[in-house]
Design a protein around this nucleic acid. Structure first.
Length: 437
RNA sequence: CGGGGCGUAGCGCAGUCUGGUAGCGCGUCUGCCUUGGGCGCAGAAGGUCGUCGGUUCAAAUCCGGCCGCCCCGACCA
């Protein structure tokens, strides 16, 4: 993409409404624009990040055996009356009427709808287990939306629902998601720690929140330091096998959010191993048994022909929230520092002198070579001074900056700067692409 | 929902107390100059001062209603 053509409105100053760093940087770097309280439009650069996060989530869900569907945002009130939640949910649910005066709602979650889809499509224990997910916009009319996309009213969420014949099966499903979540967040460059959670209004008796450590996090968290160093990506995962030992490895060390915190247990940990920090919830998984399947009559025929109410679990990842969460966890004074896996572009070519034929030619050549290798590349060919380009580039946080100017070029060198470390190396022009691709 | 704050040009703000021609910085546009970290000079465009009503000869400014946004708390992916 040529930056001179790109819709990328960056801001030099902080918008006054944005108080936390991720919100400020998302506005300044031209990722989003607010349209109402807690509702945002995604601009090209932000959308690319959102799509990358979605892609990782999707890949890990598929690998763990979940199947993607897509349910609508608008649901009928009758569906929610069936589970008894239409009246229970309260004003957080956005209720609307269609032209026929029928009561509808903008879905805050999809337990009811998925249960009906499952109920009508699956009749035998032979079809179990099933795990269905979708990535869809939700609306919760929060009392107090804030912190940009971290707590919006409209937000993109991956949610899925597992169906098993019995509790043991449901726990196997739970464990698969547990491991898939560890991998998902790790791939985004995040340290996400599973913490025993309160099951709250969704109900059930087994639940973990995945918390990203960040100084600006909303909640206080307490855990064993060893959890931070564990590396799930180094493990080979067999989703068909028994994942319980792996799950135990992550859950045996102490980790709890403020509301579940057990001070005495925490103090059992040797002092040097304790970690009291702040965190952002980016995922939440629940086993909730028959809470929905029972009232909504989601039953299958068992091996002996008996009717069995299925055991369910639900699993959520805040996809749009993750954009903010990643920035909270990865930024510096100059701007965003994107992990490569979610970066809107992997490489940015900084053309210091676009009207210099040799420089422009070298940039175009690099650009084409990166494209040929399938590398996402942004070419800053704008006719502005170098200072502005450097500032914008650091602000939007592209992992690799390839800096091409007349001085370096005359010496046959091109500078490659790593956004995260600030390291610079000078390379001959013909080695730049192979160094990064 | 309780408490607090704010709405003036694309962004950041002054002006409001004490009513009288709507301003500054950044950004934008034009020209020159400059070109390795938001350069310089000259010129220009851009605002029914959130909105509705009231007071007044006169309202960004005083009074009232409404709308919107932000922050703290309780609640939440």
């Amino acid at each position: 993409m040529r930056m001179s053509q790109y819709f990328l409105p960056t801001l030099k100053e902080n918008p006054s409404e944005a108080q936390i760093v991720s919100h400020r940087l998302m506005l300044r770097a031209g990722l989003i624009r607010q349209t109402s309280a807690g509702i945002y439009a995604w601009l090209p650069l932000g959308l690319r990040v959102l799509r990358n996060i979605e892609r990782i989530v999707r890949e890990e869900q598929d690998a763990a055996g979940a199947q993607e569907v897509l349910m609508p945002t608008i649901q009928s009130a009758d569906l929610w009356r069936e589970s008894g939640r239409y009246d229970a949910y309260g004003p957080e649910m956005l209720r609307i009427k269609d032209r026929g005066d029928r009561e509808m709602l903008y879905g805050p979650t999809n337990e009811e709808m998925i249960t009906v889809l499952f109920r009508d499509g699956v009749k035998s224990y032979r079809d179990l287990p099933k795990n269905l997910y979708h990535i869809q916009w939700k609306f919760r009319d929060e009392v107090r939306p804030r912190f940009g996309v971290m707590r919006g009213r409209e937000f993109l969420m991956k949610d899925n629902y597992s169906f098993d014949l019995d509790k043991a099966g449901a726990i196997r499903s739970y464990n698969r998601m547990f491991v898939a979540y560890l991998r998902t967040f790790a791939r985004m460059g995040l340290k996400a720690i599973p913490m025993r959670a309160d099951t709250g209004p969704i109900g059930g008796d087994l639940s973990h929140e995945f918390i990203v450590l960040a100084d600006t996090g909303e909640s206080a968290v307490f855990c064993h330091k060893g959890l931070v160093d564990k590396d799930i990506l180094a493990r080979t995962i067999a989703y068909g096998g028994d994942l319980q030992p792996l799950v135990n490895e992550w859950t045996s060390l102490y980790a709890a959010t403020d509301e579940m915190h057990d001070k005495a247990a925490f103090e059992q940990i040797p002092e040097g191993e304790r970690l009291a920090a702040r965190g952002i919830e980016v995922g939440h998984i629940f086993y909730f048994g028959t809470k929905y399947s029972k009232p909504m009559n989601a039953v299958v025929a068992g091996p002996k022909g008996e009717q069995v109410t299925v055991e369910m679990g639900s699993y959520g990842i805040g996809v749009s929230r993750l954009v903010g969460g990643i920035i909270e966890a990865s930024h510096d004074e100059a701007g965003i520092v994107w992990p490569e896996s979610v970066a809107p572009f992997k490489v940015a070519i900084v053309n210091l002198k676009p009207d210099d034929g040799a420089v422009a030619g070298a940039c175009t050549k690099l650009y084409d070579a990166f494209k040929a290798k399938g590398v996402e590349v942004l070419h800053d060919d704008r006719d502005i001074r170098p200072g502005g380009k450097f500032a914008d580039m650091d602000l939007i946080g592209i992992p690799w900056q390839v800096i091409v100017g007349p001085k370096g070029l005359a010496a046959g060198k091109i500078e490659v700067k790593n956004r995260k470390t600030g390291n610079r190396e000078e390379l001959p022009a013909d080695q730049v692409v192979s160094r990064l691709a």
